[in-house]
């Protein structure tokens, strides 16, 4: 998939892939913190979490 937003040189990493964290740094940092907390939560079992993630990705046509 071709990015729709033109990427600045600093938004492309050493492998030529988009790395957009610097384009909205405050949100990227906060999202990273939320991910850390979510992964540490043990009240939701990992199998259910993964099934929901895959199901949602399919529903949204997100094939990464």
């Amino acid at each position: 998939m071709k990015p729709r937003i033109p990427l600045t040189p600093e938004a492309v990493n050493e492998w030529g892939l988009a790395d957009t964290a610097g384009m909205a740094p405050t949100i990227a940092g906060a999202r990273q913190q939320l991910r850390r907390v979510a992964f540490r939560m043990r009240t939701v079992d990992p199998v259910t979490t993964e099934l929901v993630r895959i199901r949602n990705a399919r529903y949204q046509n997100c094939f990464f």
Binding site: T26, I27, A30, R31, Q33, L34, V37
Partner: peptide, 12 residues
């Protein structure tokens, strides 16, 4: 912890 992180994302 989760709610604090969620609030942080919204504020960001």
């Amino acid at each position: 912890e989760a709610f604090s992180a969620l609030s942080g994302v919204v504020a960001a």
